[in-house]
Nucleic acid binder design. Structure first.
Lengths: 346, 346
DNA sequence: ATGAAAGCGCTAACAA
DNA sequence: TTGTTAGCGCTTTCAT
């Protein structure tokens, strides 16, 4: 049969006819764990191969009620932490048999609305939410339709939703301890977006740590987890006479911290860490570059991803299981952007 | 009816019953452009809302033969160009009504194999290939099943496949002209992966431009588009006495170029651009950072993405249309990592 | 404009 | 182990 006349969408009936077997036999051959003889398998596979047959999983999902699709919603990839996270999430999900539909939602609620609608219409088996701005009503919408949701890197007070996050509170405390031990006395904080849990927890922990060292926050500015606002915040904090400016700053994300270092060194002519110590959060790839050498708290991406996938898959496979939260420890990575205390042991 | 007893997977029949209309009426209400009275639409929408009904697009695709799914395959997100590209690709596709299944394939052919299989099994309407390593046989597999493919940022000599790329050849020539005009005489090239078209075209164009200026390549090393190999290549090229080392280097990607700058400045103690000029390719976000200020060729992401989506959608919607290739112009972004020729006008 | 009926490609009882 | 049969939830003729 000339290839040009080949039927475009080959189905299991075509394969069955060519192999001289029933259609359901074909289905079984392509169903892992079904009961088929080797002879049957060989005949069917050969027929399938010669027709270029691939089972239609969309059709299959109709009856199994499993699409093996996971919806991933994320704000954007500007911050270098998220490309790492998304890539590993998608890879890990694939390892355990799921495929990823990914959506980017910046600020607008309407866009997030469409995203949830798409998840529901495509009958995704589960949802991973890494967006900073998704309100809890979307979570409710999914869970009500029986679609389990896992919050990635943010928490809600609501224990009815699974979530994985790093220990932002302890991270904040660690930085405070490190900076206080380094002899800093005018310590500032550069905040992320005020409405998200990571920001809040990092700041609360930081203030706790400062208090424990007998210090109070010297100053504070807001960078919204974005580059330009962070740069402006750095100017607000540091474009002052030497004795009125902070001698250290904890920046709520590396993405912002790298921009802050650039402003400090290239706009304001300050030396890091001689004039000011900078500590970030995330350990993005550029944090380790010789041009920055940013001291920061590492979020162990693989660990976080592993937990997220685990949390999601367990609820997909055993819907009766209750939601769970996990909290992954962070690790201070000491580089040279902040003065290192004598005999720092963690 | 208590919410806890609510049926989990509401279908169009449930909605029809509640609204007291036929099932096909429900379908019409949710089909854009179908013929329904306003009264019918209102009744159905109300019933649907009260049940939380969302049409099952997987079922719909069975009959329409359109999944509105696009398969995107990409190597990885290490290189800062790709996060930008993927994010915009996914957004743009969504704007025109398509949803993205994304896959990451590093080197292994078997993984790419699985990816194509998944694309076929999920009956994606089209495929976008941004992976560097996907061989042309996958393209054939998709196109034979009637799934149009667009190559993103790489070309094949084969005109039977749609492709969008930037003008790497002209880009290479431009850099040569710029460096020659800057008075450099020992000009080196740091290559990407030898087996991909972007690398080849950039180098060919570069050599052409050098020849036109009466120069030949002074030296060459290979960085495989990856950070560590690029850093090693930089050492090989520059860890020599002053009169034996290049006075300028064109690096085939910014991702590598930033690493090269770090080695030059922090390991080898060379000043950029005083001792050596560096030019990159891509214009990734960090290229503009004050710490680097890398002179580079900008790939206009929005333009490239626009073309890619256009090329794909036109073939999905009019399958008879032949594949096309587009070539997007690049633009030299002059910063301070390379000596600027007097009166440089482009 | 609406309803009845057929069927998209598949999986899963059930029989044999 | 294999075949027969009945749907899964939808879109789309075709009548009305």
């Amino acid at each position: 049969m000339p290839q040009r006349l080949m039927k475009l969408n080959v189905n299991s009936i075509d394969v069955a006819k060519l192999a001289g077997v029933s259609q359901s036999a074909v289905s079984r051959v392509f169903t892992p764990g079904a009961s088929v003889s080797q002879a049957m398998r060989d005949r069917v596979m050969q027929a399938a191969a010669s027709l270029g047959y691939q089972p239609n999983r969309l059709a299959g999902s109709l009856i199994t009620h499993r699409s093996h699709l996971i919806g991933i919603a994320i704000a954007f990839l500007d911050n270098g932490f998220y490309p790492m996270a998304v890539e590993r999430l998608v890879r890990r999900l694939r390892d355990v048999g799921y495929h990823s539909m990914v959506f980017f939602d910046r600020e607008h609620a309407s866009s997030a609305d469409d995203t949830v609608e798409a998840f529901l219409q495509y009958r995704v088996d589960g949802v991973l939410l890494a967006s900073v701005s998704l309100s809890s009503s979307w979570v409710t919408a999914c869970e009500r339709s029986g679609v389990p949701v896992v919050l990635f890197n943010r928490t809600q007070d609501d224990p009815h939703v699974s979530a994985v996050s790093v220990d932002n509170l302890e991270g904040g405390r660690t930085v405070a301890r490190f900076l206080a031990a380094g002899g800093h006395r005018r310590i500032a904080y550069l905040a992320g977006r005020e409405d998200v849990s990571t920001q809040r927890d990092r700041e609360v922990g930081f203030r706790q740590g400062l208090a424990a060292a007998g210090l109070a926050l010297f100053d504070r500015a807001v960078g919204h987890y974005a580059l330009d606002p962070a740069r402006q915040a750095a100017r607000d904090l540091f474009d002052r006479p030497a004795d009125e400016r902070p001698d250290a700053v904890f920046v709520a994300s590396d993405h912002m911290a790298l921009g802050v270092m650039d402003v400090l060194r290239f706009e304001l002519g300050l030396a890091v860490p001689h004039d000011v110590s900078v500590v970030g959060f995330d350990d993005v790839p550029f944090a380790g570059a010789p041009s920055y050498r940013l001291t920061t708290l590492r979020q162990p991406v693989d660990h976080v991803v592993e937990d997220a996938v685990q949390l999601l898959v367990e609820r997909i496979e055993r819907p009766a299981l209750p939601p769970r939260q996990t909290r992954v420890p962070v690790e201070l990575v000491v580089r040279e952007s902040a003065r290192i205390p004598d005999a720092w042991t963690g």
